[in-house]
């Protein structure tokens, strides 16, 4: 078998495998307010196929404002935090030593838990030599599931997570948003901004990441951080520049010198801002950016490595 044939076989195997499970597309950014939700909702509407849109920005979810789904299910969500059995605890301190988040201290012969600092990794429960630690459920927020039927031929499953007031630990709820519900062929994740735990939790395990940025110094600074982050995670990615003709050329220069292809540029237009303020998507009939969206699929193969390009579902066609 020639090298080319081998590669073709390999790619077709990967396609089969990928087709059998959902393709997950994460829309992330460094900087907030660059247009992640605008793009995620537009892509979900443009998909024209089985799609689940998941709003992973659980600290400030807003995709529902644009999707306007018919809600079908609301569930309260808990996360595990350690409960110490004082009778069994020998105050050995192994749990406190293990905890990277300083959520446990051992003082005066007993282990003390600061549940609000706990990241729910359950490492303490596993390491405890006395078996003194069990899970206690701590309320963290809620999940809402629904469906948008604007185009009955291409319904959008919609899932949104909302962190409870006073809760600061987003990752466990983000994991719940990613895991709940039926698997559609295409999963679109509207990710939280930044490059810390919530963003990493959201993008981890996805098949492709779109980094949305804007051509400003803040946009560039945070894009650089986001690029470093997704590279560290080994995820293929492409860049989309929103409000492309505002600001300066430094984002373009950065992408060019680093060999990062720009998949799409969304123009800076008052009409887009007006559509956004009405809660319309970029795909809305007559919306000015609609002609720009198909460019995404046209430019896609140049933005990603060959296998990923071939595996991309036919979005925006």
């Amino acid at each position: 078998m020639s090298e080319t044939q081998k590669l073709e076989t390999q790619i077709s195997d990967m396609r089969r495998e990928k087709n059998a499970r959902p393709f997950t597309l994460a829309i992330a950014s460094g900087k907030g307010g660059t247009g992640k939700t605008t793009l995620a909702t537009a892509l979900a509407e443009a998909a024209g196929m089985g799609v689940t849109l998941r709003d992973c920005d659980v600290e400030e979810p807003n995709a529902h404002l644009f999707v306007q789904p018919h809600w079908s299910r609301h569930t309260e969500q808990n996360r595990p935090v350690p409960r110490i059995d004082a009778q069994r605890c020998s105050a050995c301190g192994k749990c406190a030593e293990l905890c990277q988040f300083n959520a446990i201290a051992v003082a005066g012969g007993r282990a003390m838990v600061f549940a609000e600092l706990c990241h729910s990794c359950q490492g303490c429960r596993r390491i405890c030599p006395e078996g003194a630690i069990s899970d206690e459920n701590m309320p963290m927020g809620s999940l809402d599931c629904g469906m948008q039927l604007k185009d009955p031929a291409a319904p959008i499953n919609f899932i949104s997570g909302k962190l409870a007031i006073g809760q600061v630990m987003a990752p466990p709820l983000i994991r719940a948003v990613k895991n709940v519900g039926a698997a559609e062929p295409l999963n679109i994740l509207d990710c939280p901004p930044g490059t810390s735990c919530p963003m990493i939790t959201a993008v981890r395990g996805s098949d492709f990441v779109i980094l949305v940025t804007e051509p400003t110094p803040f946009g560039l600074n945070d894009l650089e951080l986001a690029v470093e982050t997704v590279r560290q995670l080994g995820l293929p990615f492409g860049v989309i520049i929103n409000r492309a003709d505002s600001g300066d050329s430094r984002v373009h220069d950065y992408c060019r010198t680093r060999g990062i292809n720009i998949a799409l540029e969304i123009p800076w237009k008052r009409s887009i801002a007006e559509a956004y303020s009405r809660g319309d998507s970029l795909c809305e009939k007559g919306a000015p950016a609609k002609p720009a969206l198909p460019q995404l699929s046209a430019t896609w193969p140049t933005t990603v490595s060959v296998p990923t390009a071939m595996l991309m579902p036919p979005i925006c066609t």
């Binding site: 988040f101 300083n102 959520a103 201290a105 051992v106 600061f114 600092l117």
Partner: peptide
């Protein structure tokens, strides 16, 4: 340089 819980760990 701790992200959180510096007081708890310093006390420990």
């Amino acid at each position: 340089n701790a992200a959180q819980g510096a007081g708890i760990q310093a006390a420990q």
